[in-house]
Design a protein around this nucleic acid. Structure first.
Lengths: 223, 223
DNA sequence: ACCTGAACACCGTTCAAGT
DNA sequence: ACCTGAACACCGTTCAAGT
């Protein structure tokens, strides 16, 4: 009796071996199993080829991650239509942060491999538009966008790796056990340092950033 | 003729197999060859043992990285003695950023594996002290420290991985090629978006953060 | 030209077995 | 108890060789 061929029913239609096909499969694996499983070898296996073949379409793993992020960026939708510019700006930033928080390891990778895809450009345009609506001078807005996006990305990235919850507790313990002779300011602030609901802190941080960007003059360029 | 034993002159005194010894060797390798070479296997080899032995002293790679960072933190020295609180605060933050910029991949790892060592606590104490001196309310200062340290860490982390320089150029190209019909605000700001000397941007960002922290009220805790 | 099998040069972590 | 050899289960990337 000949061995029966392995079933191929798992994937309805095998995506084509193109950049789009690779990114599509990568997003699928990311959603189902997380970024650590999105490896060149796994992708190749899923596409019935060897890992070497992928290098025709993507330069390396970092570039692949950036493409995946831009793809996901398409899902956060437009800015809220109601409310003042400040609230709407916070709304966009919170939506971006929330999306990244679903894939913290992708956020981590986005911090290093800068996205430059179409959805990322749309996001920058939206942020600049809202800052302009609020009367923030163009130069401050331009430099400020970096601050806002970096805060969102870094906040999500901090949750990558299973250890993060434990580390927070370790730091909390260290902060509360500190002597008020050697570290008087920590001792005095220990109750507040790690206090507050996560949403409240996220919101406060964005408002503080917006306030700072609004009020801080960019230096005159010297030549 | 018996085989001559392998020379052991490379390392003057092999550090003891203790947590301190392991961290010391890790710092040494980091300084000489960068974080990617600081692996469990390499460390074990350097200490004449197998990788499994290290797990008696460190929980995992992330914890090791955090210990290494705290060690390096000891080298940035105290806050500048002269100047207003604002300038001294910026001085501390710039010194921290500069140190991290020498080891961007360590910064990247610090974003995930929170340090909680003695030198990190000292840094927090210094920041809180300077904000207090500036009359910043305790609650704002406590929440603000997270903003300041995260900015420093994330800025350095962005330089990890060889690709970062190229990515920046790619983004710059994408930004300057955008159509002013679809992305009018980017088009209008394209000159400013990526302008400015790195030091000027780092300095502006910290000043904007300080200004924002100073002026943004923390919400009343609800129970 | 486009594609890929196989190899190169590694990883972190666990665990059974030794001392 | 403390320590570790060997194994498990993987990685990314390159390159010579095939079609």
């Amino acid at each position: 009796m000949p061995a029966t061929p392995r079933s191929r029913r798992e994937r309805p239609a095998k995506p084509a071996l193109t950049r789009e096909g690779i990114v599509a499969v990568a997003v699928e694996i990311l959603r189902a199993e997380g970024l650590p499983k999105v490896t060149m070898r796994r992708l190749a296996q899923e596409l019935d080829t060897g890992p070497a073949s992928l290098y025709v379409y993507v330069r390396n793993t970092a570039e692949l991650h950036a493409a995946v992020l831009d793809e996901l960026l398409g899902s956060i939708g437009p800015a809220p239509a109601a409310g003042g510019w400040r609230e709407r700006l916070e709304g966009v930033l919170v939506a971006y942060t929330r999306m990244l928080l679903e894939y913290p390891s992708l956020a981590r990778s986005a911090l290093t491999a800068w996205p430059s895809g179409p959805h990322y450009l749309d996001l920058i345009e939206t942020l600049l538009g809202l800052l302009d609506e609020g009367g923030v001078p163009r130069e401050r807005a331009a430099w400020g966008v970096d601050l806002l996006l970096q805060r969102a990305t870094a906040t999500a990235a901090e949750h990558a790796g299973e250890a993060s919850r434990e580390d927070w507790d370790t730091l909390g313990q260290a902060l509360s056990q500190v002597s008020d002779r050697t570290h008087p300011h920590i001792a005095a602030a220990s109750g507040v340092l790690l206090s507050g609901a996560p949403e409240a802190r996220v919101s406060w941080a964005f408002q503080a950033l917006i306030n700072g960007i609004e009020r801080t003059a960019v230096p005159e360029p010297r030549d």
